[in-house]
Design a protein around this nucleic acid. Structure first.
Length: 479
RNA sequence: GGUCCCUUCGUCUAUCGGUUAGGACGCGAGAUUUUCAAUCUUGAAAGACGGGUUCGACUCCCGUAGGGACCGCCA
């Protein structure tokens, strides 16, 4: 954040998702890395929507991505830039490249290209597109046939991507095609648009997934053709599924909103994601300011990491336990609309039950790994008398258990303050007097009060439910 | 197939040539306990393989194997 030892100029980074779908978990981590790098060094975090492909553009996806970032509490500077909105400027640069001899018009048709690919495939030789139009200067061009503009990429030597994560990656120029920078319909392609935008937006560090590594080599050629400074690159490894294969819908490549709906906290998800491919010694749980202080792209690992829900859950449990009760209540209320049985609870959430929920929170949050578990733990608060009993509760309320409740009832009715402490004393005294182990009394009591065999401590449950409700539930089950 | 990248406990990782290879999750055992958690103690668990370089390699180099990314007028 305000680390005085950092004297380098403040970086300008960008997160540049394409609006073809939701914000997936890998994208979320890339955004987080960008955000940490910018915010940790007093830099800027810009947002750009890569929507040059009009056919695949989806406004709902843009909204979902922005929502996901907001939920993750990652902010950005200024308005999100639409790449499509800058098409004029991209075309202008393409013309400039044409004029300065670094690009050429190519009349190769998609059909011809397809045939070249098939032939290469059949002969099992590598395919590198070598357009015959490269050096013809447009002579012999067919009439009225649309053309594309290709970069006249160097054929000799090598193009180097000096990557902050991957190291120095060298590509032989003879392996690289003359990439298309302007489509036959006059629209810019991704690689051109990205270079122009990154240059115009004065991006100092391009932090993105390794799937873009070869693009960086191509983009470097465009920078060089324009005589522009190449930004620093940091290509972060991809996230894999539990089986080591690329993360797909089958595993966990869900939209970020799915994680919210599964009851994860943004802080937990951030902490989990930052430790995937990056670490700071043995530190596992870290605050935002620690992350901001410690994070550096040069410490990111080169190998892909597998997504592990068990560890995410553990972290989430930690963040729930250390969260403020009031905040948890808000998280619950935010999540309720997305839960199958949430509407029922929303209905009952008046100021009284809200207060009870808050009162129960310390006991509840100790046992929940997700917000959903937190809600289920609070089920007993919203139950109607007579309570439905689950199988184990049923067993606890055998004749012996019910008999105990009957005997205990008058003692509880005589309680003066109905506090957890007083109630515990009453029950303990009762247990001792009857020579029963505390559990023999507490378990039937729990079953009667919650309908379950597991719950927060029974005395807390009684206090939270209040005298009238608690006694009523016990009477329902007493012999 | 071509190019490029990767490879330490099951998983995430530490180690920047010299360590009994450490931590976390998960798993096992124990303590605590009114249940379940939480918490504490504790156990099992790793340098893919083969060559070098070096007094000494998990660490540097080469090869093999395995995995991955990219190879669109998609981004």
């Amino acid at each position: 954040m305000n680390n005085p030892t950092r004297s380098a100029p403040a970086p300008i980074v960008r997160f540049a998702p394409s609006p073809t779908g939701y914000l997936h978990i890998g994208g979320a981590r890339t955004a987080l890395f960008n955000w940490l790098y910018a915010r940790g060094r007093g830099g800027k975090m810009l947002l750009r929507i890569e929507d040059t492909d009009r056919e695949r553009n989806n406004p709902a996806a843009v909204a979902a991505i922005l929502d996901g970032l907001k939920w993750l509490e990652l902010d950005w500077d200024g308005e999100a830039v639409s790449q499509f909105g800058r098409a004029q400027r991209h075309r202008q640069v393409a013309e400039e490249l044409l004029a300065n001899g670094h690009a050429y018009k190519c009349w190769l048709t998609p059909q011809e290209l397809e045939r070249m690919r098939e032939e290469a495939q059949a002969e099992k030789r590598p395919l590198t597109i070598r357009s015959m139009w490269r050096d013809r200067d447009g002579s012999g061009a067919p009439e009225g046939v649309p053309y594309v503009i290709r970069l006249k990429a160097p054929r000799e030597g090598e193009t180097v991507v000096d990557d902050l994560v991957q190291g120095r990656v060298v590509f032989a120029n003879k392996e690289l095609d003359d990439l298309i920078i302007l489509r036959s319909d006059g629209n810019p392609t991704y690689n051109l648009a990205v270079v122009v935008d990154d240059h115009d937006m004065k991006i100092s560090h391009v932090i993105r997934g390794v799937d873009h590594l070869t693009n960086s080599a191509r983009q470097t050629q465009i920078y060089e053709a324009m005589g522009w400074a190449v930004p620093k690159f940091a290509h972060v490894p991809l996230i894999h599924g539990p089986d080591g294969a690329k993360l797909s819908k089958r595993h966990g490549a869900l939209g970020i909103e799915a994680y919210r709906e599964m009851g994860y906290l943004p802080a937990a998800l951030r902490n989990y994601l930052v430790r995937l491919g990056w670490s700071h010694g043995n530190d596992e749980i870290m605050s935002n300011s620690q992350m901001l202080d410690w994070f550096d792209v040069t410490d990111i690992n080169r190998s892909a990491a597998r997504f592990d829900f068990a560890k995410l859950e553990d972290l989430n449990g930690h963040y729930i336990r250390t969260s403020d009760d009031q905040e948890l209540l808000k998280r619950i209320e935010d999540l309720l609309p997305f839960l199958p049985d949430g509407a029922k609870i929303v209905e009952r959430l008046d100021s009284d039950t809200r207060a009870r929920l808050l009162l129960a929170m310390p006991g509840l949050k100790e046992r929940a790994k997700t917000i959903i578990e937190l809600v289920h733990g609070a089920d007993f608060l919203f139950a109607d008398r007579p309570l439905p009993l689950d199988e184990k509760a049923e067993k606890l309320l055998d004749p012996e258990g019910r008999q105990r409740l009957t005997e205990l009832l008058p003692k509880l009715e005589a309680s003066s303050r109905w506090s957890a402490g007083e109630l515990e004393e009453i029950v303990r005294t009762f247990a001792e007097a009857t020579g029963a182990k505390l559990g023999k009394v507490a378990q039937p009591l729990r079953a009667a009060l919650t309908g379950k065999s597991i719950s927060p401590p029974v005395f807390d449950v009684m206090a939270v439910l209040g005298r009238e409700e608690a006694l009523g539930r016990i009477r329902d089950q007493a012999a």
